[in-house]
Design a protein around this nucleic acid. Sequence first.
RNA 1: UGGGGUGUAGCCAAGCGGUAAGGCAGCGGGUUUUGAUCCCGCCAUUCGCAGGUUCGAAUCCUGCCACCCCAGCCA
Length: 561
Amino acid sequence: MNEAADSGGRDFIRQIVADDLASGRHARVVTRFPPEPNGFLHIGHAKSICLNFGIAAEFGGDCYLRLDDTNPVREDQEYVDAIIEGVHWLGFDWGPRLTHASDYFEALHDCAVQLIRAGKAYVDSLSAEQIREYRGTLTTPGRPSPDRERPVAENLELFRRMRAGEFADGQYVLRAKIDMAAPNINLRDPTLYRIRRASHQRTGDAWCIYPMYDFAHTISDALEGITHSICTLEFEDHRPLYEWLLDQLQLPARPRQYEFSRLNVAYTITSKRRLAELIELGLVGGWDDPRLPTILGMRRRGYPPEALREFCSRIGVTKKDHLIEMALLESCVRDDLNRRAPRAMAVLDPLKLVLVNYPQGQVETLPAANHPERPELGSRELPFGRELWIEREDFMEDPPKKFFRLRPGGEVRLRNAYIIRCEEVVKDAAGNITELRCSYDPATRSGSGPAAERKVKGTIHWVAAHAALAGELRLYDRLFTVERPDADPSGRDFREFINPSSLERRLGCMLEPALAAAVPGAWYQFERVGYFVADRVDSRPGQPVFNRVVGLRDSWAKAQA
RNA sequence: UGGGGUGUAGCCAAGCGGUAAGGCAGCGGGUUUUGAUCCCGCCAUUCGCAGGUUCGAAUCCUGCCACCCCAGCCA
């Protein structure tokens, strides 16, 4: 156990866990992450995963990965596989603790019988619509179903026949018998079981009755010996039902439920329904579109799992509604990538530059460190020659004050190479700049001694034309133009806020040749441009496609704005 | 209008009766062959509002206000 266990913890849930351990209420903490396999994981799940697995790890306990598969018509094995892969990718492991709610179907059924025998549950023949009517409203109490006082023996028999498949979907449900006048609507005889003649991805056709969330979840928690059942705020109202079930049933453990606020990140959405809509409508490329806050999307985008974990740690855990700025996520990503990404050079918008005093036909090779602060990452050889590509925006014919880059007659350092001076600007008939003719100072080659130490205001990146690898770069921006696409004050639909320039494909980029060897998933910092990752899907051997993970902080651009 | 929650800086968030941590963002400065990184400094006389208790209140009490969640045989 580390300091988290004895310092009181970092958030209110960890404090509770620490207290429970200190007081001896629990000898060991057990948590669980219980996703429903009806969709892909997203950043909101990441917060819950980090919380549950994080607490187990910090306090020396266990965390289950439990697939909450109680609704066969919505769930699919494809999601199960993706969830498993996603949690692993995030960096967590559950050992032998991979479970499914469906593992407990028999036990769940027995609990239902237990409830019926105790007169705490009954089989109701009301239709779904009738149940809704009888439930009352937020401000008026409900009324009892005509079946509410059905004798125990009859309930038992009907429930047996429900299980035996003698009835059609919707003909009967099993309901808890609690209080139709309860101010908390969840206590107005909630449904426990419904008939669903659907094949289940794991249990096949063994069952035609399936338990509802509250019932299955509470009992699964107890069966697994969960000590702290952590969920989001919208389940706060369900806690009395959770407690009620634990009170009625003979179960091996008494878990407690705690709620925290779900994650909201500005300029994006996490609603399963809306994400699916974006995909179905073709507004994004798929669940792994790099603009999406899905685990699949963020992975493809190049967000390191460590950065995501750091993000989850920095945002904290509270019960407050919040809206986290994208800048915080980006800060975590830059932090991580700055340390791990080797540097390279790539020109996004190439402008030809000719060194007029560099011998025709000559080429050389210049060493360049892969990381300015980590010599152990080694170095590489950069081809250099008479013709180069530089970034078009690194030259201005009539620059503003404090422009440190190239200008007519001005000098600039070519990163890892020589200092050059702009001698001539070549334009086409339309007046567009087509080429820069410069001279270089042979005495200023990087690392060649005192003469090379001469200072100039700016340093720019470049790629030798004779060895350049032409390639595609993809630049991403926020997917939406408003902070809360799904709750904009204007009331307009979230699809109306899609940022038309959230994806920009740059086809004619010039990359330093070493980048041809980039393996899918490899990170680089293209100096002065940003962090990039070789795309896992579209890269080909020798011809990688790069995704911009996030740009570098850019105080010059900021000053210009 | 019933029930359940939440209000500390632009965004997060510590704080648990002893006089407002930290991070992100922002601003200013230093280092720098990335306008990056790194480093230094600044950034809440005040904790939704109003009263009260107390020597002392963001922390306790009372009232009010604002916002979020709940009426699936979804989770």
